[in-house]
Design a protein around this nucleic acid. Structure first.
Lengths: 187, 187
DNA sequence: ACCTGAACACCGTTCAAGT
DNA sequence: ACCTGAACACCGTTCAAGT
C-alpha cells in the first residue's frame, strides 16, 4: 500500500548502492538526485546534510544485513553447520563485501561508528556463541570469533587487492571454506 | 646532502600521512600545501592532478613497507619464528594498518590498483613460501597464506570497527598471536 | 625551471519563493 | 508539508605573469 512517499528511504537506498559501488566518497547529493527523482534542494528538506544521508544508508545496511542473516540459519541445530552456512552467506554475498570494506575505511566517522560497532558486536557475539557451543572456553571462543571475523573482513579486502589469491568459482570457494572451517574449529 | 629540493617526495609523504590519518579522502591539495610549505598552484608544476599525488603516496608506501620488512627477518632461519616475527611487525605497526584499510576501500582506483597488486603479490608469495617450508603442499600453502593475509587485513578493520574484540596491551596481543599461529600451522 | 595569485568549475549547502 | 532554482562557499584545476 503506502502510496509512494518514502523519499528518505529512497535516498538512503541510493546512497547505500553508491557506497557499494564506489565507496563513501561516491555518496554525492547531486549525482544521486536524478536517481531518486528529486532535486538537490529537496534533499535538504529530508536530511540535514550529506553526513546524515551516509548515516541513513549505514542504518539501512544494519537493518538488512544483520538480523536477517542470523535468523536465516536459526533453524540449523548443528553449530559447525551453522558456521559453515555463515561462510557461504558471507562469501557469496553478491555485493562482495564492498560495503564492509568501504565502512572500515571510515570507521571513525561519528555518523558511521555507532552503527558499525552495533553490527560488529552483534555478529561477533553470535559467532562467539557458536564456538562456545563447539566446546571452546569463553576466552578462546572470543579469540576465535575475532579471528573468524577478521578473515571475513580481510577476505574482501584481499579479493579487491588481488583476485589471484582468492578462490575463483564454486569449487575453489568450497575448498577454501572447508580448509578454513577445519583450521578454525581444530582444537 | 641533496640540498632541500625534493618537493615531490615532500608532497607524497604529506599525502601518505593524510591517508593514514583520514583516508584517501583526506588527500586535499589545499590542506596539504601549507604542510609542504608551498602553494596550491605550485603543486601542479610537480603533479598532473590529485590522482597523481595519491599514486605517488602509494608508491612511497610500497617502497617503505614491503621489502624492508621482509629483509628485516631474512636472517631468521626457523620458518615458524619468521611467521611469528611478521605478526609482531604487522600488529604492532604504529600506524595500525590504517593505510591498508584506506587502500582496500579504493583498490579499484587505476592509480592505486597496480601498486596494491604488487605489494599483495610480494607479501603473499613470501608467506606462501613460509608455509611450504613448514611442510604444506603448494595448494594448501597458498590457501593458508591467503587466510593469514586476510586475518592481517581484517584485524585492522575489526579494531577500527570495535576495539572491544581486538587484543589490548602486549599480554593479550601475545596470547592472540600465539593462538593464531597455532591455528594456522596446525596440520 | 619553478613559483604565485587570480580565475573558473564542481558540488555541498542555504534560502526565498512556489505549490 | 514539501519542492524548486538561484546563489554562495569550498576545493580541484588552469593559466598568465613573475623570478
Amino acid at each position: 500500500m503506502a502510496a509512494r512517499k518514502l523519499q528518505p528511504d529512497d535516498w538512503a537506498q541510493a546512497a547505500l548502492d553508491a557506497i557499494a559501488e564506489g565507496g563513501v566518497g561516491a555518496v554525492a547529493v547531486e549525482a544521486l538526485a536524478p536517481k531518486v527523482g528529486a532535486s538537490k534542494g529537496s534533499f535538504y528538506w529530508h536530511f540535514s546534510d550529506r553526513g546524515a544521508l551516509i548515516q541513513a544508508a549505514v542504518e539501512l545496511w544494519e537493518r538488512t544485513r544483520t538480523e536477517s542473516v542470523i535468523a536465516d540459519i536459526a533453524e540449523v541445530t548443528d553449530a559447525r553447520e551453522r558456521l559453515r552456512r555463515l561462510f557461504t552467506t558471507a562469501f557469496t554475498n553478491p555485493r562482495g563485501g564492498r560495503i564492509e570494506t568501504a565502512l572500515s575505511a571510515c570507521a571513525d566517522d561519528p555518523r558511521v561508528s555507532p552503527v558499525l560497532q552495533r553490527v560488529t558486536e552483534r555478529r561477533l557475539s553470535y559467532v562467539t556463541g557458536i564456538y562456545e557451543e563447539l566446546g571452546f572456553d569463553a576466552e578462546s571462543a572470543r579469540r576465535r570469533a575475532a579471528i573468524t571475523y577478521s578473515v571475513y573482513l580481510g577476505f574482501f579486502s584481499l579479493r579487491e587487492a588481488s583476485s589471484r589469491w582468492t578462490p575463483q568459482g564454486e569449487k575453489e570457494l568450497d575448498a577454501f571454506m572447508d580448509e578454513l572451517l577445519e583450521i578454525l574449529i581444530a582444537s
